[in-house]
């Protein structure tokens, strides 16, 4: 019989984002050029090996400030992947309420929301402006921390170096 859409609680979503993960299928050393953008991909497993994920990194060739770094959960029950997190550059006036009077033009993060899913909307439709990164490189660091990728330094050499500190150490003003 047809598969019902899977329901997730917000607690479950938050746990999927935050659970410790390790790289199971590594990214390329360099991003690959592909029809107008650069891309890289990798597979992840939770360190308890219960869950599988994929991460994607995309960056526009024409507008390098347009990028997206995302985390998708790959459930094993055939219900289809769920985009949990996307860290985006300022690619346009983002608007989560279809309200043109309330635009954003900034770095922002889409995060899956159980409430959105219950309304039949895209899980990651809700998004917030983010001040913790201001470049692709910083967004990658932010992503690695948010997704709790424990062995990222083995694949992204300079991650964790440089000026960007942990969120707890440098909270938003």
């Amino acid at each position: 019989m047809p598969m019902e859409p899977r329901h997730y609680s917000q607690e479950e979503i938050d746990e999927l984002i935050a659970c410790p993960k390790a790289v199971s299928d590594p990214p390329r050393k360099e991003m690959k050029q592909d029809r107008g953008h650069f891309r890289n991909d990798m597979r992840l497993k939770s360190t308890d090996e219960k869950f599988e994920f994929r991460a994607f990194m995309r960056r526009s060739e024409d507008f390098p400030e347009n990028f997206s770094i995302g985390l998708a959960f790959l459930p094993k029950d055939g219900t289809g992947e769920l985009i949990l997190l996307r860290c985006n550059g300022p690619h346009g006036d983002f608007n989560d309420a279809f309200d043109p009077a309330n635009p954003h033009f900034d770095f922002h993060v889409h995060r899956a929301s159980a409430a959105m899913m219950e309304e039949g909307l895209r899980a990651e439709k809700s998004a917030t402006v983010n001040r913790d990164f201001a470049s692709y490189e910083e967004a990658l660091q932010y992503f690695v921390r948010s997704a709790n990728i424990t062995d990222a330094t083995a694949y992204f050499g300079n991650i964790g170096q440089g000026r960007l500190l942990l969120v707890e150490e440098e909270p938003n003003p």
Partner: peptide, 23 residues
Amino acid sequence: RERRPGVLQVVAPLFHEDGDMVD
């Protein structure tokens, strides 16, 4: 919005399902 010399981004109420604006 001028994104590059001679290239304007059109900021119009046209959106993808995830809330991002159509580029």
